[in-house]
Write a protein that binds this DNA or RNA. Structure first.
Length: 644
RNA sequence: GCCGCUAUAGCUCAGUGGUAGAGCGCGUCAUUGGUAAUGACGAGGCCGAGAGUCCGAUUCUCUCUAGCGGCACCA
């Protein structure tokens, strides 16, 4: 390179600065202004992030990233991971480092070490990290040939690091970063020095196990999770958000609102209490009406089925470990993990004509899957559950139409539950699959056409389809921005074949129908879990287990309170009466904690005038209404969304 | 399934090598109070299950089970 050649740097605002010879991100930032020089952390040169110390050798478009910028977060978190690793190496030199990326909301670092880290160790690590930040160690980039780097890390006893570097394809120079005595392989870029991470902007969260290279055949490493932000305020806000999310935890609310419980004797299988079961049956009734509206026929099939059927369907071979089995009269039976084989049995009874298609068979199918113990999580991952399952048997040329109608139905239903933001994921052919490429081409096109017609945007999950056909997955976003995959539609060419489903076509010969597996809620259990967290336990009227509680100011109003209660009941409302000898403050507090949407209060005035004072959940306002009007208002509010 | 942590009253949690405590909740009594906790008294525990060490285990050790946080899995 010619030291005297001119370098022209174009800034985002279009202005150009010219330099003779050596220029780095830092020189540029200093030239623009001392404020920027102080805030700058990384420079972007022709779209690529570089260290501030990077020497720009030819003319380029550049921009400077400061701590204010959104991109800064990832860099900060990545640096936090490095500082964590440095701290751990200082404290426990025998520990080996592996990888430590930035992740959503923070970072982690995986360590290899005989002795497990303890929660106390977390505090020690965090304290040391703070010291390293205060030391203001320069973070210095260098390059080394791959093979030399492998050798270096081997000598240092870092066999995992050496393994990673050895797996980099060519013997190209790779970049290393050094801060203090800690050296790590890293693509960068990094902050200029450890001080930039800041004070009070990061926190170590938990210790967890994680497999080396994410493979359960490998040894388990110890992962330390942390969170890091641009400033103290952001960290505080994040910790606050976690606390708020914890308050919505459906396991906690399930107990508090007396919805369901779990116990040791039936791990992963919910016991529904009256309150929870009210929500469940409300949803079931709603779904039943929607399905009827959309031309589904509801059926019900056995939960316990002979092994033979599972062998025929292919489940015995593929999903055996996840199936519960039992034995009787020398035959082996399995609890169904899915409903599809049974639905094909219903389809197969008698001859089906092409005139009967599409045949839509729906079942609130009770399934059992022996999930790995570590996977269980409240209602979100259970071993016994009920799907809003259905199978559409149709001719190939009806896939688009059926999918389109399904998408419309699904959007309507999600909207009724208050979910308006829906994403679609499209999974196409996997490597290992059944069926010819022609058939896959056609099926994939059918699904995409349908999604387009409905006006949904989709993202592609390449190769993630089932071995028997492509699929659509529907993801909803809840009130605090979390995504949940609930709905699915899967094309299946294989099962009709395996279970020999056929129909008589217009040509009077047998044909193979296509089967569309589809669900909207997924499982009732999980969907209710999502609803609990979405509403934070404050269910809309139509779902609320108890819609209204009537109570008096004193027991002098008991007769009137009882009268109101009877009227609420006969108006079809889920009402409770509270004539306990307690003060009104106490009762309001208690029923508010129970998240009852409406409290009817009757004092002497109300009893005399045939009125009632309503207090709504979450409001301190009171409204006194004529009793009949008040009841009618609640009745209207309680109408299920599909009946409005 | 794997790694780590946890398991004491209905709930939240304290505690000890000599068989146990608080607050809330629950029951009784008094109080009848206009919108987020009235007071007094009382009942309630095989200290997750099994084994071991010990004169003695809720406490220490081991095994199991379940829960929690991750990882792997999720047809």
């Amino acid at each position: 390179m010619n030291a005297s050649s001119k370098v022209a740097l174009t800034l985002p605002d279009g202005s150009v600065r010219e330099y003779d010879g050596l220029v780095t991100g830092m020189t540029l930032a200093q030239d623009i202004g001392p404020g920027l020089a102080k805030a700058a952390i990384v420079i972007i040169v022709n779209g690529e992030q570089r260290d501030l110390s990077y020497e720009i050798t030819s003319s380029a478009n550049v921009s400077i990233i400061t701590k204010r910028d959104e991109e800064a977060l990832e860099i900060i978190r990545h640096d936090a991971a490095h500082i964590l690793a440095e701290a751990v190496k200082e404290l426990w030199p025998e520990t080996q480092v592996t990888i430590g990326p930035a992740i959503e909301n923070g970072f982690y670092y995986d360590f290899a070490r005989e002795e497990p880290f303890t929660p106390e160790d977390l505090e020690i690590m965090e304290t040391r990290m703070k010291e390293i930040v205060a030391r203001d160690e320069d973070i210095i980039r260098s390059e080394m040939l791959r093979d030399d780097a492998v050798e270096l890390f081997r000598t240092m006893g870092e066999k995992y690091k050496a393994e990673i570097i050895a797996s980099i394809p060519s013997n190209e120079p790779i970049s290393l970063y050094k801060q203090g005595n800690f050296i790590d392989l890293c693509r960068g870029p990094h902050l200029p020095s450890t001080r930039y991470l800041g004070e009070g902007t990061f926190k170590l969260m938990t210790i967890a196990g994680a497999y080396w290279r994410g493979d359960s055949n490998n040894e388990m490493l110890q992962r330390v999770y942390g969170t890091a932000w641009r400033d103290k305020k952001e960290l505080k806000a994040y910790l606050h958000r976690i606390e708020e999310a914890e308050k919505r935890d459906h396991r906690k609310l399930g107990r508090e609102l007396n919805l369901f419980h779990f116990q040791e004797e039936a791990a992963g299988m919910p016991f529904w209490h009256p309150n929870g079961w009210t929500i469940y049956t409300q949803i079931e009734g709603y779904m039943r009406r929607k399905q009827r509206e959309y031309g589904y026929q509801e059926i019900n099939t056995p939960k316990l089925v002979d092994r033979k059927l599972w062998e025929d369907s292919g489940h015995w071979e593929k999903f055996r470990e996840h199936m519960y089995t039992t034995e009787s009269e020398e035959r082996i039976f399995a609890l169904k993990p899915m409903n599809c084989p049974c639905h094909v049995q219903v389809f197969n009874q008698g001859l089906v004509s092409y005139r009967d298609l599409p045949l839509r068979l729906a079942e609130f199918g009770s399934c059992h899957r022996n999930e790995p113990s570590g996977a269980l999580h409240g209602l979100m991952r259970v071993r016994s559950f009920v799907q809003d399952d259905a199978h559409i048997f149709c001719e190939k040329d009806k896939i688009t139409e059926e999918t389109e109608t399904f998408c419309g139905m699904l959007l309507e239903i999600y909207k009724d539950f208050g979910f308006e933001k829906i994403k679609v994921k499209f999974s196409d052919r996997p490597e290992v699959r059944a069926g010819s490429d022609d058939v896959w081409d056609e099926a994939e096109k059918c699904l995409l056409d349908a999604v387009d017609h409905v006006g949904l945007e989709y993202t592609l999950n390449p190769g993630e389809g089932a071995f028997y056909g492509p699929k659509l997955e529907f993801v909803l976003t809840d009130a605090i921005g979390r995504d949940w995959q609930c709905g699915t539609l899967q094309v299946d060419f294989v099962l009709p074949e395996r279970l020999d489903a056929n129909y008589v076509g217009a040509d009077n010969t047998k044909h193979r129908p296509v089967m569309l597996h589809r669900a909207i809620l997924g499982s009732f259990e999980r969907f209710i879990g999502i609803l609990i967290e979405n509403f934070a336990g404050r269910f809309p009227m139509w779902l609320a287990p108890i819609q209204v509680v009537v109570t008096g100011i004193t027991n002098d109003q008991d007769a009137y309170v009882n009268e109101v209660y009877m009227q609420l009941k006969s108006a079809g409302l889920r009402a409770e009466i509270d004539t306990r000898n307690e003060k009104i403050n106490y009762k309001i507090r208690e029923h508010s904690h129970a998240k009852i949407p409406a409290i009817f209060v009757a004092g002497g005035r109300e009893a005399d005038n045939n009125t009632i004072t309503i207090r709504r959940l979450g409001s301190k306002n009171q409204e006194t209404l004529d009793l009949t009007d008040a009841i009618n208002t609640l009745v209207t509010e309680s109408i299920e969304p599909d009946k409005r």
